[in-house]
């Protein structure tokens, strides 16, 4: 992949909608989505691990689907709705997957965590009540070097449970209202 082209190409304007907010930045046309998010938008929750689509640490949601942001150009993410780990909840109001990772001690160094959180958030939308086997399958494309995965598996199942509990209680609240 040696690139001997030493001239920088002309810059382009890229407009992305991330976590519900629109941002425009002027960047090189081959600016990776991961770099755009991290460097240009300072959304550094998206982590870059292997840089070629194997580890999954940089996973973000593109129209709700998990995508490796290190394998995507920022320009090609225009016209799509992007969600990063920062858009899935806050410390005060965590998303179900975030809460499950905290409860289950599903992290150690935390570097792979955002990629797992985004991946699993999309997964439990599609599969609200997964078996442990399905949970393992869902995260088989993400690497963690610290935990040995046991607690991450537990967190997938627990996240689905939290999501169901929350939708039940919000339905009940709606019925009472």
């Amino acid at each position: 992949m040696t690139d001997t082209d030493q001239t920088a190409p002309a810059l382009v304007d890229v407009t992305l909608r991330v976590n519900g907010v629109e941002h425009t930045r002027t960047v090189e046309p081959r600016r990776l989505l991961s770099d755009f998010l991290r460097h240009d938008l300072r959304l550094t929750g998206t982590h870059v691990g292997c840089e070629h689509g194997v580890c999954g640490a940089c996973t973000v949601l593109v129209d709700g689907d998990p995508m490796r942001s290190c394998l995507m150009f920022a320009v090609s993410a225009q016209e799509h709705e992007l969600t990063t780990v920062e858009g899935l909840g806050t410390q005060e109001a965590m998303g179900p997957v975030q809460q499950a990772f905290v409860e289950c001690h599903g992290l150690q160094c935390g570097f792979c965590t955002p990629g797992f959180v985004t991946t699993i958030s999309a997964f439990i939308e599609e599969n609200p009540d997964p078996t442990l086997e399905e949970a393992r399958e869902a995260i088989s494309g993400n690497l963690c070097r610290c935990t040995g995965y046991q607690n991450i598996c537990k967190a997938v199942v627990r996240a689905a449970e939290i999501r169901r509990e929350r939708s039940t209680s919000s339905t009940e609240a709606g019925e009472r209202a």
Binding site: T44, V85, Q91, M94, V102, L107
Partner: peptide, 11 residues
Amino acid sequence: RHESADLHVTG
């Protein structure tokens, strides 16, 4: 839980 867990899961 890990002391920084809240920070890690929210990025």
